[in-house]
């Protein structure tokens, strides 16, 4: 029920934070504008324990099996996966472009790293997104302070380690103010 705090059932392993799943789908024809983007995004589950996460995650279609323009987001409870959200307005994201067929594996690994607190950047992490597009898929991880270089570098290095990325993988950092300026995410 709305607003009811998600608790950790007895015997289950608590997560450092509660996380909410979101799903958004966009018809490529309609131009991206914040208004309709906000209309298209839906949250569908909040988890507080490792076992609750698996119960929700194991019922979600794998991103690699999605077609068209779809995004899955897993964000800390209370942070909306929108540039304008208070937690995001001074932030940015690391963007990793993946050739088709890799999204599901990398999505699971980046989630496990986030849930397991592997990034060691305090409160900086906001959430992770997998974006399914026609030519390529995109993985991104959002953090709160774009100009906190210590954190953004540590996030990048952790991503390389936990995702076991091929060395030539392109990783770029984009601030949300830049995304708002050119009204494009990537």
């Amino acid at each position: 029920p709305k607003g009811k705090e998600v608790m950790v059932p007895p015997g289950e392993h608590p997560l450092q934070y509660r996380y909410t799943f979101w799903y958004s789908r966009r018809t490529p024809s309609r131009p991206a504008s914040t208004h309709n983007y906000e209309q298209n995004i839906r949250q569908f589950g909040t988890v507080a324990s490792v076992e609750q996460f698996w119960r929700v995650y194991s019922h979600i279609v794998r991103p690699g099996d999605l077609t068209g323009y779809s995004d899955f987001h897993l964000f800390k409870e209370g942070i909306r996966p929108l540039w304008e959200d208070d937690a995001n307005k001074n932030g940015g994201k690391w963007i990793i472009r993946l050739r088709k067929g890799l999204a599901s594996r990398f999505w699971e690994n980046i989630i496990l790293a986030m849930l397991g607190e592997q990034f060691m950047v305090g409160e900086e992490i906001c959430g992770v997104v997998v974006s399914i597009r026609f030519q390529e898929d995109i993985l991104s991880i959002w953090n709160k302070t774009a100009n906190d270089q210590l954190s953004t570098v540590r996030i990048r290095d952790t991503l390389r380690r936990v995702l076991n990325l091929p060395p030539n993988t392109i990783m770029e950092y984009k601030t949300h103010t830049d995304s708002l300026k050119d009204n494009s995410s990537f």
């Binding site: 059932p9 194991s58 592997q118």
Partner: peptide, 21 residues
């Protein structure tokens, strides 16, 4: 304060625990 840290193997091992079904 202390942080709750889990490595990837620990999290994957919980996937098939009865509580996660």
């Amino acid at each position: 304060g202390t942080r709750i840290i889990y490595d990837r193997k620990f999290l994957l091992d919980r996937r098939n625990s009865p509580l996660a079904q």
